[in-house]
């Protein structure tokens, strides 16, 4: 039998084709065996010893935590104010908003989020959150159970995630003045 030596390009092309075929086959199997479940996209991050998340749709930007001007006499949860796309936003301590005591590491990131009332604000965070999904049914069930702004949702692998409902969180809080008149 005559063997024709393959060039490097040929070998790579063949490998790529095989890889793509394997992936396509896997996807076909998933489609045949599993019913696609509706999911809720979240931005997940650690806070203290626990895992927290925000709905991904509320997230507008992630910025490095710098150029924040502290606001003397403001409420304890107010870290300061910053500029974002021509607006002045408040940077808030998420740990403080949630009644926590602190982070494991100093926050390095600010998450610009929609508060749910059309206004933007920035929340501090240890690191850029990880986008992931939760089963929509679990989120809806948790929403019914939850009384406050934080819903306890279990992932498919039984991990507990505290999903923050920003609209509820800010509706439950007043304004931020320590010495408001």
């Amino acid at each position: 039998m005559k063997v024709t030596p393959r060039t490097m390009e040929d070998a790579q092309e063949t490998e790529a084709r095989e890889l793509l075929e394997r992936r396509a086959s896997r996807l076909r199997e998933q489609g045949e065996t599993a019913v696609e479940e509706a999911v809720h996209w979240i931005a997940e991050f650690p806070l203290g010893e626990e895992r927290y998340a925000l709905s991904l749709e509320t997230l507008r930007a992630a910025l490095p935590l710098k150029m924040v001007t502290p606001v003397p006499l403001s409420a304890p949860h107010v870290v300061g104010v910053l500029r974002f796309q021509g607006q002045v936003l408040a940077a808030l301590s998420l740990a403080s908003l949630l009644g926590g005591h602190g982070w494991r590491q100093d926050p390095a990131v600010l998450l610009v989020v929609d508060r749910g009332d059309g206004e933007l604000c920035a929340l501090d965070c240890e690191a850029i959150p990880r986008p992931t999904t939760l089963p929509m049914s679990a989120v809806e069930a948790a929403r019914v159970r939850a009384e406050g702004a934080v819903m306890e949702v279990f992932t498919q692998d039984r991990q507990l995630i505290h999903l923050i409902d920003l609209k509820r969180l800010f509706a439950l809080r007043g304004t931020g003045g320590r010495h408001a008149r």
Binding site: V71, P72, S74, A75, V81, Q87, E119, G176, A180
Partner: peptide, 18 residues
């Protein structure tokens, strides 16, 4: 510029400038 709602009621401040 006006301050965001979280600090608007702090009576010491009337706004912020860049």
């Amino acid at each position: 510029r006006p301050l965001p709602s979280e600090v608007r009621d702090v009576p010491a401040w009337q706004g912020a400038a860049t």
